[in-house]
Design a protein around this nucleic acid. Structure first.
Ligand code: FES
Ligand code: FES
Lengths: 157, 157
DNA sequence: TCTATTGTTGACCAATTTGGTCGCCAACAG
DNA sequence: CTGTTGGCGACCAAATTGGTCAACAATAGA
């Protein structure tokens, strides 16, 4: 039920990667693809909505690449998921109130909206900087230099 | 993102229907199908996991039908969704901890688990009886006799 | 200006999931 | 035995997912 697709999962990892390299100028898609183990052609599609959403900037040509347009602490996970997976809602009608005139009569509607608010609460209160901080902390606990662990941000076993 | 499928949505309506007819003996699938506007063949598939999960009892033959095995106040929405849609988790690894040895190193894992707990919190604290009560209250506000409105529990416009 | 580099786009594809229908079988009341 | 009712598996179409590929656009630097 209600699984996140690879868009959301990979995309979050891509942004975490960009957050970890914040301030280093344009990052090559090729490098992100290698570190996050995402195929380059697929990554190009993943990054598109993030660029369209004004979250990421891209530069073509030599010395090009992509970088965050906003500071990591200004990027909330709710925006990220919104861009990558669309509206955060367990059912259509919750996100699209006016299109469903029956909502006021529908009991389950109220519950699904509560679920939506619960999800949104978590994602809204988490920023990309939070993820970056947690990642660095985990690396420190491992007593390993950061650059040796940069590939270890996967969610797939 | 993370939409509920018709299994979860229709199935919840089916249980709400059974909750509203609690104590009336076996309810015909045919009647549920008509009231909830679900095709009978599809309904038979929807009800299967609920029977397998011990939530609903079925009786075949004349004067048969289905009915709740537990009282509506003992049926939590979390169980319902669990039976109909599988584990409540935005990513596999959250539900399947031991199969994903990388979890402790993975930052996003923590976030997805927070999301899972948020969802579960809502569904765990809502029982079928809550839905029944809300439905009756909505009907009362409409000042209409109950039996005229029994079809109006849809979530689809 | 030429070229190598890097991102952009859209067409295309296979696999999976979703949302069903249909036909036959099993159980049971009368 | 017969009619009624649910159980179950095969089957199906459509949508979604998860990609690949080739052609193109932009740009930096020689
Ligand atoms: S291991 Fe589960 S999200 Fe990373
Ligand atoms: S109208 Fe949205 S769930 Fe019923």
């Amino acid at each position: 039920m209600m699984k996140l697709s690879t868009k959301g999962r990979y995309g979050t990892r891509v942004l975490l990667d960009l957050g970890l390299h914040w301030g280093e100028g344009p990052i090559l898609l090729k490098d992100i693809a290698r570190r996050q183990e995402i195929s380059l052609p697929y990554l190009e599609h993943l990054i598109a909505p993030l660029i369209a959403g004004g979250m990421v900037k891209s530069i073509r040509g030599p010395r090009g690449g992509v970088s965050l347009l906003k500071r990591p602490e200004e990027i909330r996970l709710s925006e990220v998921i919104q861009l990558l997976e669309g509206p955060i809602a367990p059912v259509e009608c919750v996100h699209n109130p006016e299109a469903y005139p029956r909502s006021p009569l529908c009991v389950t509607h109220d519950i699904w909206d509560e679920v939506r608010r619960a999800i949104d609460g978590v994602l809204e209160s988490t920023t990309l900087q939070d993820l970056v901080d947690r990642q660095k902390q985990k690396w420190n606990l491992e007593h390993l230099p950061r650059h040796e662990k940069q590939g270890a941000t996967w969610e797939d076993a």
